[in-house]
């Protein structure tokens, strides 16, 4: 399957943080979830992909073309939702439509107003007076109104109530009805990603800790709550020790069925990698 976005050995150094040789792809027709704790490097990856920070190494390709060689029209084939929204706050939706119409060559105001209607956003109120959820919905409506084939979303559901999050996920499901589309979404709300994603990339300490097809990952790992010394050490990926004992993230295929493991979630995997230790 051809990748819509290809990231190879992406590196970026900040003061006390390094994004270290990160590589992964976003296949056409799929949703890739970028998960990890705060400060893991998710936003740095997203900003690198959008060209709003300068990287120290690596390559970013969109449909095989390096990011730096994309023209304005090609760049506009990517819809963007930033964690802080970053839209003008002194305009209402009608004015925002006018601004965007003159910024994007393929702006579709019918789509924009249809989406803002669907999100029940008032047209004549300044966006700066919107709630966080309304601002995020505005950003999503804008990102979906200029003929984007790829969506890059940085924490779009963070801080939103479950109803608003569900509405946003519905919109993303609709977007993915076109098999030529692709989505890269970062979030630390793993339950949202578990519903939506086909692939998951887990970033920890600036590196890719785990990546792969979501269902395969959830099938590959399991949580074991029994006596860890009974396990084959090669089967134990991470251990979380507690006052009353320990839990282990294990490779399901290496554990005898009689040991009784529990199904894992993306959140389990994330917690084991962040808080757990190797045997």
């Amino acid at each position: 399957m051809k990748n819509k976005i290809e990231i190879k050995n992406l590196t970026k150094h900040y003061g006390g943080f390094t994004l270290d040789n990160v590589s992964f792809g976003v296949p056409r027709g799929s949703v890739v979830g970028l998960i990890g704790e705060n400060g893991a490097g998710k936003s740095t990856i997203i900003k690198s992909l959008l060209g709003v920070i300068n990287t120290d190494g690596g390559e970013i390709l969109f449909d095989g073309v390096p990011l730096g060689r994309l023209g304005k029209n090609q760049r506009q084939l990517t819809g963007v939702v930033l964690d802080d929204v970053s839209l003008p706050s002194a305009v209402n939706l009608r004015e925002l439509n006018t601004v965007m119409k003159n910024m994007f060559s393929r702006w579709d105001e019918q789509t924009f107003f249809a989406l803002t209607e669907r999100f029940r956003l008032p047209r004549d109120k300044k966006t700066g007076e919107f709630s966080k959820g309304m601002k995020m919905k505005t950003a999503i409506a804008a990102a979906l109104s200029h003929g984007a084939e790829t969506l890059i979303l940085d924490e779009p559901t963070s801080g939103l109530d479950p109803v608003a999050r569900d509405e946003i996920l519905d919109i993303l499901y609709d977007f993915m009805q076109n098999s030529g589309h692709a989505v890269l979404i970062s979030s630390h709300i793993t339950s949202d990603l578990e519903k939506l994603c086909d692939y998951v990339v887990f970033i920890h300490g600036g590196k890719v800790a785990v990546s792969g097809e979501k269902d395969a990952l959830l099938e590959e790992y399991a949580v074991y709550g029994g006596n860890i010394s009974d396990l084959d050490p090669a089967a134990v990926v991470r251990v979380r020790r507690r006052n009353y004992g320990a839990d282990a993230l294990v490779k399901r295929s290496m554990i005898p069925p009689s040991f009784g493991t529990e199904k894992t979630t993306l959140e389990d995997i994330m917690l084991f990698f962040v808080k757990g230790e190797k045997l």
Partner: peptide, 18 residues
């Protein structure tokens, strides 16, 4: 000042404006 407050430069750059 408005652009800085709204983080507009980030959005504009992300949308491909040079």
């Amino acid at each position: 000042a408005y652009d800085e407050k709204d983080n507009w430069y980030k959005f504009a750059r992300a949308c491909g404006l040079s």
